[in-house]
Simulated assay, not measured.
Amino acid sequence: MTTPSPPGAAPTRVLVCDDQALIRTGLVTIIDAQPDMEVVGECGDGRKGVDLARELDPDVVVMDIRMPVLDGLEATRLLAGAGVAHPVKVLVVTTFNLDEYVYEALRAGASGFLLKDAPPDRLLHGIRTVAMGAALLDPEVTRQLVGRYATRIRPTEGAPEDVPLTPRELEVLRLIADGLSNSEIAAALVISQETVKTFVSRILTKLNLRDRVQAVVYAFRHGLAS
């Protein structure tokens, strides 16, 4: 788990977007109770979320997917998608049994996702992780959620032989797409975690990807994921 910011550091500014008032209030209460976080705004629809994000410049937007006026998927694309001059870090929260748009949310530019029934400490960990510029891609959630919709994702951007990676880098990329953490990849390949980090960094650089989330999307788009 990530740890709170050191004393004296500016709090992480969070915008909460969820159309269910009870859930939104709960999120705001949990986040605002943290000494290293501050809720700077809240709203119940995606259009308002986009407007508030542009007005308030939060460090992280906690975004629901299914919302009126403008859904969280399109709101995420407007805030963090390709071509956005000043992208905002978006952490998607979703209901596993209902939401079929998580993969598209990741493609839209979300830095990660959580399930709405995750414990509060997981939410706080997610916000801190995303605020630091890292991706939140929980291994177990990745296996279940991305795997569940893998059959709906059709490769459209080239063949595996066109991917500019070494065989070992391809192997690491496939394991990332399977939802393995760095430690799990290290164990599977019998290498150190530092070596895994080096491979991950090379993969992101070669493919011009922002983070592990985009690496998973890339792997599925290119037919590299199992």
Rank of each mutant, 00 (worst) to 15 (best):
T94H: 05
L70K: 15
D51W: 00
G72I: 11
G44D: 13
G49T: 08
G26K: 07
L145A: 11
D45K: 13
D51L: 09
Y103D: 05
V39T: 06
V130R: 02
E104N: 12
D99Q: 09
R66L: 09
V141R: 14
L22M: 12
A105Q: 03
E42I: 07
E55K: 13
M37Q: 10
T95W: 05
Q34M: 14
L123S: 06
L70M: 09
A80K: 15
R107T: 11
V39Y: 00
P35R: 10
N97H: 04
A80L: 14
A110W: 00
M67G: 02
K48H: 15
A118R: 06
L145M: 13
D64K: 06
K89R: 15
E100A: 01
V92I: 10
V102N: 03
G81A: 14
V93G: 00
G133Y: 09
V39D: 11
V60R: 15
A82L: 07
V90Q: 01
L79N: 07
V141L: 15
H125F: 04
R66S: 07
L124V: 14
A75W: 12
L136P: 00
D59K: 15
V62C: 11
A21E: 10
M67N: 03
T142Q: 01
D99F: 09
T76Y: 12
Y103Q: 03
T94L: 10
T151D: 03
A75C: 10
R107P: 05
G147S: 03
V93P: 00
D138I: 10
R66T: 10
L106V: 11
P119M: 04
A131M: 04
I23F: 14
E140C: 02
V92R: 01
D117R: 07
L91E: 08
L22W: 02
L106A: 00
L79R: 12
R54V: 15
I127P: 08
